[in-house]
């Protein structure tokens, strides 16, 4: 099972990478653009004077940090330890409403290992998720860029506590809608272009899985599937994901350094679940973040989705 999930994840990464290369480089030779016209084009005051490239911005991230897992189906105690995540993010500007729309696809796969307060039992966690959605962009004064949108996503995972008898695992799964908002601000330190971004994702409406208070998975295995799916909203299934990232424009690509806070909580059937993580993020953006000045001799006008 784990092997199949890993293969699926690698497949998604590969497809996205191939797709991105095709869109990035398949551009006809255009006439030159002036820097003045670029600003006016961005603001929708004049039509595009040259072919436009909307490359897919790829970001690959590794995250490691502290994890805190509470699931009262397994134990009344909070387990603390570490977590690791591999994540990919692909985004692209769309040619609608003066290029103010962008589309984004995220996928991540994570693992956590945590100990109980007495440090004599270990809880293992595994999860993966995929998310897709559009967002709308506002270019504000002071070079600020604000993005707001929504996405649909699904996630699945499990917390596993080997010491337990007939309640050794707690499966997590949901499908739902989320709101997203992000702000970006570029600045320079010396000759280094830096883009600081804060992204917040707020799962809002969902359908999620939970067994009943004391329902064994054996009963589910026997065929009792009633009452396992629940409608989720902020009152019973709250989560938030916040990423503060600094993208450093280095050479043709960019380096991402950041911090991510993630919370998934639910209160259903008297089962209290709180899965939190604080993680350091390091990432690689193969084609950069698009902060360098556009050269007049450049053959295409590039609209980057990151900024």
């Amino acid at each position: 099972m784990k092997k199949n999930l890993l293969v699926l994840f690698i497949l998604i990464l590969t497809v996205q990478a191939v797709y991105s290369r095709q869109l990035t480089y398949d551009i006809p030779d255009p006439p030159e653009c002036s820097s003045d016209s670029i600003v006016r084009m961005l603001e929708g005051q004049m039509p595009m004077c040259c072919p436009v490239s909307r490359p897919i911005t790829q970001i690959y991230m590794a995250e490691i940090g502290g994890a805190s897992n509470l699931d009262t189906y397994l134990s009344p105690l909070r387990y603390r330890g570490y977590g690791m995540v591999l994540a990919g993010q692909w985004s692209k500007a769309l040619p609608w409403m003066d290029n103010r729309w962008l589309m984004r696809f995220d996928s991540r796969i994570g693992f956590s290992s945590a100990l109980n307060p007495a440090r004599n039992a270990r809880m293992l966690g595994f999860d993966m998720s995929v998310v897709w959605g559009p967002a709308f962009t506002w270019r504000l004064p002071m070079k600020l860029r604000l993005t707001a949108g929504a996405d649909v996503g699904m996630s699945a995972g499990v917390l596993y506590l080997p010491r337990n008898s007939n309640n050794p695992a707690s499966v997590k799964a949901d499908v739902g809608l989320a709101l997203t908002v992000s702000g970006a601000y570029p600045f320079r330190i010396g000759r280094l272009n830096i883009l600081v971004t804060d992204e917040v994702r707020l799962p809002t409406l969902s359908v999620f899985f939970s067994p009943d208070y004391g329902e064994p998975y054996y009963e589910i295995y026997l065929g009792n599937h009633s009452g396992l799916a629940h409608c989720g909203w902020w009152g019973n299934h709250f989560g938030i994901d916040n990423l503060l990232a600094f993208d450093l424009d280095i050479g043709p690509s960019a380096l991402r350094l950041g911090y991510r806070y993630s919370l998934r909580s639910s209160w259903i059937n008297h089962i209290n679940t709180q899965i939190q993580s604080h993680a350091f993020v390091i990432g690689w953006i193969p084609h950069g973040i698009g902060l360098r000045a556009t050269s007049p001799s450049r053959k295409a006008f590039v609209i980057n989705s990151l900024y």
């Binding site: 134990s75 009344p76 105690l77 109980n116 307060p117 007495a118 440090r119 004599n120 039992a121 010491r163 337990n164 008898s165 007939n166 309640n167 050794p168 004391g214 329902e215 064994p216 054996y218 009963e219």
Partner: peptide, 19 residues
């Protein structure tokens, strides 16, 4: 009764009939 497990802050584990 199908047994479930829980635990105490000092790390002791308890098993009991639950279903």
């Amino acid at each position: 009764g199908l047994p479930f497990s829980s635990e105490l802050p000092n790390g002791w584990s308890v098993r009991f009939s639950a279903c």
